[in-house]
């Protein structure tokens, strides 16, 4: 049984509880008083089909699929406007990240969303050497080698109609090089352990 099916069976009609138990800072959702302050705070506001306020309402209303397959939380720029404004002090940024990560773990994240893809590419690239390939500030620089091949690979595999994939957008990324940490194996073992701890908990929660 897939993790997703197991979670559906376990929590049946209580998505709020599922979120509280499995999503980063998810237990805060119940504290939302639907004031709407966060809804007006996202810089990419009009790209959000469901504002954070609306997502919290939908969680209470058991709209599980709609929430987890939404691309809205992938529009979060991590600007932290919402966090400093929310009268109930919900860690909204983290809940958005948490919903996105949870959806991805369950295989429900929208495959065609460019930020979803970028986030994964960034992480995988960083894990190879322990540092994001050099960011040369102030030059028309950006991320580097391993990164570029990662990008090409995912274009080949996903054939997404992403505008950012056009040569022009990728050009700034071509001048990157690579540095890394010395104790790469220690770093990778550490991350593996952290991932295992989380995976075990998720697995246990699904039973």
């Amino acid at each position: 049984m897939s993790l997703n099916t197991a979670m559906v069976e376990k929590y049946r009609n209580n998505f709020l509880q599922e979120v509280a138990g499995n999503v980063e800072e998810g237990d805060w959702v119940k504290m939302c008083m639907q004031c709407g302050v966060c809804a007006g705070s996202c810089p990419l506001g009009n790209a959000w089909e469901h504002t954070p306020q609306k997502l919290f309402m939908m969680i209470r209303a058991n709209k599980r699929d709609e929430v987890l397959t939404s691309d809205s939380m992938w529009m979060c720029t991590s600007c932290y406007n919402c966090i400093v404004r929310c009268p109930r002090e919900l860690p909204i940024t983290h809940i958005m990240h948490g919903l996105a990560t949870y959806a991805k773990k369950l295989g429900l994240a929208p495959q065609s969303n460019p930020t979803q893809w970028f986030s994964e590419t960034f992480w995988n690239n960083m894990m190879k050497k322990g540092r994001v390939n050099e960011l040369k500030l102030g030059l028309s620089l950006y991320f580097k080698d391993g990164f570029v091949s990662g990008i090409k690979e995912s274009i080949a595999h996903q054939k997404l109609g992403m505008n950012m994939m056009k040569a022009k957008r990728m050009a700034p990324m071509e001048i990157m090089g690579g540095h890394g940490v010395k104790d790469l194996s220690g770093l990778q073992k550490m991350i593996k352990k952290a991932q295992d701890i989380e995976a075990e908990r998720l697995e246990a929660n699904s039973k």
């Binding site: 992938w74 990560t101 979803q116 986030s119 960034f122 992480w123 991350i191 952290a194 701890i197 989380e198």
Partner: peptide, 13 residues
């Protein structure tokens, strides 16, 4: 991992 690694790197990592 900045603020963008979250998609694949969840909280503990």
């Amino acid at each position: 991992s900045a603020s963008i690694g979250y998609g694949s790197g969840s909280v503990l990592p």
